[in-house]
Design a binder for these strands. Structure first.
Length: 499
RNA sequence: GUCCCCAUCGUCUAGAGGCCUAGGACUCCACUCUUUCAAGGUGGCGACACGGGUUCGAAUCCCGUUGGGGACGCCA
């Protein structure tokens, strides 16, 4: 029997020791993890992280990652939410093994287990009405006592049951001693059994409760590791009691701290508790979100940019911290910029195209597509998100004459336009590569006197309509001689137009 | 109210009693590179919540305080 104190269990060192002794899985034990969302809304960012951790853990150990939709609340579960969750996981690249399990289809099995407990005398029928229960809770709260069911039907003769009241089935939970959870993240957590009441297993309509369903399904699906948000930590005590009553092996628990908003409070919609599809729409790459979520509450030394292959090699439960982390868009942006720069140009073109179409109101022409392909290197280096990338790419897609923003207009002074006109004359039969064009520009300013910017900036304004863009000679090359000369002419001609 | 959990720069974190004058990353600032803006490079600002112990020695172990979070449904 292991008799480490709570505190030894909590320290990093002690924890490692504790689990070396207690939890080293048998050599032939295959890890089976699962993600078990309830389809009452989209796949939010916290759920996505939980799914990622489970997925990574299974991959790391060469095990299986299963998906179970906990749709036992028929009122609140929707088909749209199920699809949103599946889409979200798919977009994130978190594939699951085997068929998706729908918990609602297993109600009969759940009830069967509960009735077995009833037959064995380990559960009992409770005839309390909802009103009675509510009154009980209110009285306890008012008296400053713990709020829980008092077990009034636990040993009462069912013959005394009031007529017309359909009973719920409750577990006859231990009333003395304590229940201990050996949690891979939280350490050894214990609670006195007098703190826990007799949980409902079956409702009055014979439908199973979440508490029953989870335990039965995790057991039947042979789940070895339950990794979930630590809002479930107290549920783990009750579930542990149920496992014991059933004589089943308790899985390894790992309760991961929740993600908080920037103000430290529970993540709300305002903070970013959005569906993953919202992050997709905001222009984040799935690999960036995966990396960000991985580092939120988990660390591997000083490593920051960790691709998925590396994450699989490194991920384990010991690296998970126990304090809640706050969601930070600035860091996500930074990581997204990194993965944007690393992404293949063709892939980015595909992602940016629909965004351009939305801005333009029509599908860009083939020539534009070609420009995007060739100009992507300069474009992707300057964006944090695909939305920003699309904004910056717009000048490649817009028809002439290009609208000028204020700073670009300010750049095109009469003198600058005149200079641009003279430079354009040299361009007519120049070799059309960025390097040659830059050399030409340098030669031009050398001859005229002045800095490269004197010609490069007006050129940028003429070509892109903005004062900020990818390298102007790259833009020149990508646009091609005809389009570039036409854009320059537009700007120069405007100089001749009467004010 | 009861129970449980947490506490290192603004944020994410490294940290296993001496390698800590506390490291990295994001943000911010400066410089650099430079045709713009990014990216890159260099540097800077910036933290062990507080109080007691234990110890030759504490960010690290113990106790308490304070602050934060979570759970207390015939929801999941």
């Amino acid at each position: 029997m292991l008799s480490l104190s709570k505190h030894e269990g909590r320290s990093g060192h002690g924890r490692a020791q504790l689990f070396r002794i207690d939890f080293r899985p048998a050599k032939d034990m295959t890890v089976v993890s699962r993600f078990a969302p309830s389809p009452t809304g989209f796949l939010h960012i916290g759920g996505a992280r939980t799914a990622l951790f489970n997925w990574l853990f299974a991959k790391h150990h060469g095990g299986r990652f299963l998906l179970r939709i906990e749709d036992t609340d028929r009122q609140r579960s929707t088909q749209a939410a199920i699809e949103a969750i599946l889409d979200g996981l798919t977009w994130l690249g978190l594939d699951w093994d085997g068929e998706t399990v729908f918990q609602s289809t297993r109600a009969a099995r759940h009830a069967e287990v509960a009735h077995g407990l009833l037959d064995a005398g380990m559960a009992y029928r409770c005839y309390c009405t909802p009103q009675e229960l509510a009154a009980m809770r209110e009285a306890a709260r008012a008296a400053g006592r713990p709020v829980r069911y008092d077990g009034r039907w636990r040993d009462r003769d069912p013959a005394e049951a009031p007529p017309g009241v359909a009973p719920a089935v409750r577990l006859k939970a231990p009333q003395t001693g304590e229940t201990v959870i050996a949690d891979r993240v939280q350490g050894e957590v214990r609670v006195g059994n007098e703190q826990l009441d007799d949980m409902v297993l079956l409702r009055a309509d014979d439908s199973p409760t979440y508490m029953l369903s989870v335990v039965v399904d995790d057991h039947d699906m042979a789940i070895t590791h339950v990794i979930r948000g630590d809002d479930h930590l107290t549920n783990a005590f009750r579930q542990s009691q149920l496992y014991n009553a059933l004589g089943w092996t308790v899985p390894v628990f790992a309760h991961v701290p929740l993600i908080h908003g920037p103000d430290g409070a529970k993540l709300s919609k305002r903070h970013g508790a959005l569906g993953v599809e919202a992050y997709r729409d905001m222009g984040y790459l799935p690999e960036a979100l995966r990396n960000y979520l991985l580092r939120l509450g988990w660390a591997h030394g000083d490593d920051e940019t960790i691709d998925t292959e590396q994450a699989i090699a490194w991920f384990d439960l010991d690296g998970i911290g126990r304090s809640p982390a706050r969601f930070d868009f600035a860091k996500l942006d930074n990581l997204n910029g990194y993965y944007l720069r690393a992404a293949a140009d063709d892939r980015l073109v595909g992602l940016v195209l629909p965004r351009l179409e939305r801005r333009l109101g029509y599908a860009p022409a083939a020539a534009v597509l070609d420009r995007l392909r060739r100009g992507m290197g300069g474009l992707k280096a300057r964006a944090k998100t695909l939305e920003e990338l699309a904004d910056n790419a717009l000048f490649y897609a817009r028809p002439r004459p290009l609208p000028l923003d204020d700073r670009a207009a300010a750049l095109l002074t009469p003198a600058a336009r005149a200079r641009l006109g003279r430079f354009a004359g040299l361009l007519v039969d120049a070799e059309w590569t960025a390097a040659a064009l830059e050399a030409a520009a340098r030669a031009f300013v050398e001859a005229e006197g002045g800095k490269l910017g004197d010609v490069a900036q007006p050129l940028r304004a003429a070509l892109t309509g903005a004062a900020v863009s990818p390298g102007v000679f790259e833009v020149l090359e990508v646009l091609g001689r005809d389009e570039a000369m036409a854009r320059i002419d537009d700007a120069v001609d405007a100089a001749r137009a009467p004010d």
